[in-house]
Amino acid sequence: MTRILLFCAAGMSTSMLVSKMKKAANDLGVDVSIEAYPESEMSKRVDEADVVLLGPQVKFVLPKAKSIFEPKGIPVEVINTMDYGMMNGEKVLKRALEISKK
């Protein structure tokens, strides 16, 4: 199972995207765990992630996120703004799975 964590300002807008990602995972038969948290919880969630995605509104924390997760071999990426705005759960899920295999 791939554990995907999304971080945003408060964890609310991203929770809608998480629902769409979970539906896409179910439709595609992919075994994943997807959760959303406020970016202030990044340090507390290191052991819960295989992939970390940041909401576009918190892309300024990318260097901090990379310093927390990448030393543990966990890839970090900012969600594509268009995919986030369109709440394209399937596309975001596929991208998360893609970067988890690098």
Rank of each mutant, 00 (worst) to 15 (best):
R45V: 06
K66Q: 15
E41Y: 15
P56K: 04
D27Q: 09
N26A: 12
A9H: 13
I4M: 07
M87L: 14
M86Q: 12
Q57K: 04
C8E: 10
G55E: 09
M82F: 12
V51P: 07
N80R: 05
E98A: 10
I68E: 09
E90P: 02
E39N: 08
F60A: 02
D47I: 02
V76H: 05
L28C: 01
M1S: 12
M42D: 05
A96K: 09
M1A: 14
A25Q: 08
A49I: 11
G73Y: 03
D27P: 03
D31Q: 13
K91H: 03
P63S: 06
M42Y: 07
P38D: 06
Q57Y: 05
N80E: 09
L53P: 00
E39C: 06
P56G: 00
S100Q: 13
K101Y: 07
E35H: 12
D27M: 04
V76E: 04
V76P: 01
M21S: 03
K20C: 01
V51L: 04
V92S: 01
L6I: 15
G55F: 02
N26D: 14
G11V: 10
P75V: 01
R3P: 09
F7S: 04
K94N: 08
E39P: 00
L6F: 15
R95L: 08
D27E: 15
V51Q: 05
G73H: 03
N88V: 02
K72P: 01
G85D: 05
K64V: 13
K94R: 14
E48W: 11
S19K: 15
K66I: 06
A49D: 07
L97H: 08
S33G: 08
V32W: 11
P75C: 01
K44D: 15
D31Y: 04
G29W: 01
E39F: 15
L28E: 13
K23R: 14
K20A: 04
I34D: 06
P38S: 09
D50P: 10
V92G: 00
V32H: 12
K94A: 00
M87P: 00
L93R: 03
M16K: 08
K22V: 11
K20E: 09
S43F: 07
S100Y: 09
D50C: 02
M21R: 04
T2Y: 13
V92C: 00
G29K: 01
L5M: 07
M86D: 00
L53K: 02
K72C: 01
G85Y: 06
G89R: 06
D50I: 05
A49C: 08
V78R: 08
E39L: 02
T2F: 10
K102V: 13
L62W: 04
M12W: 03
V30F: 13
I79A: 03
N80M: 10
K91W: 00
P71L: 00
D31E: 15
K59F: 11
K66T: 09
K101T: 14
I79D: 05
Y37S: 04
M21Y: 08
E70L: 03
L54C: 05
C8L: 09
S40V: 14
R95D: 10
V76L: 05
E98C: 02
C8I: 11
Y37V: 03
V61K: 08
V78H: 05
